[in-house]
């Protein structure tokens, strides 16, 4: 069903580095879970609406009124790395 290549692709979509020797382990585990999940294929769902929200709630808004933002000190309090009020990350374009 799923191959090591699929696991690699999914890992890269998920931004997870997986060591080569771990690929077969994850592949086997994912495969057994997917096999179990495949039982849903038995269900007749053609005319069933999907439930993404469990209750039929709608139209929840916020008024367009300004509230205070974080102070600069608060905004940087958890920063891993910072430079002159910015969050600093490794270069995006190499």
């Amino acid at each position: 069903m799923i191959t090591n290549e699929t696991v690699k692709y999914i890992a890269s979509l998920s931004r997870l580095h997986i060591e080569e020797d771990r690929l077969p382990v994850f592949r086997a585990e994912l495969e057994s879970i997917l096999q179990y999940i495949d039982q849903l294929a038995k269900l007749e769902v053609a005319n069933v609406p999907p439930t993404s929200h469990v209750f039929q709630m709608e139209n929840v808004f916020r008024d367009d009124v300004v509230a205070p933002s974080l102070t600069p000190a608060e905004a940087m309090s958890f920063a891993i790395d910072q430079h002159s009020g910015h969050y600093k990350v490794p270069k995006v374009i190499e």
């Binding site: 999940i37 269900l43 769902v45 999907p50 439930t51």
Partner: peptide, 15 residues
């Protein structure tokens, strides 16, 4: 469609 959407529909049936 095969997994996620189908699961949301199964969720309807369970609910």
């Amino acid at each position: 469609d095969a997994y996620y959407l189908r699961a949301l529909k199964a969720r309807t049936l369970i609910k």
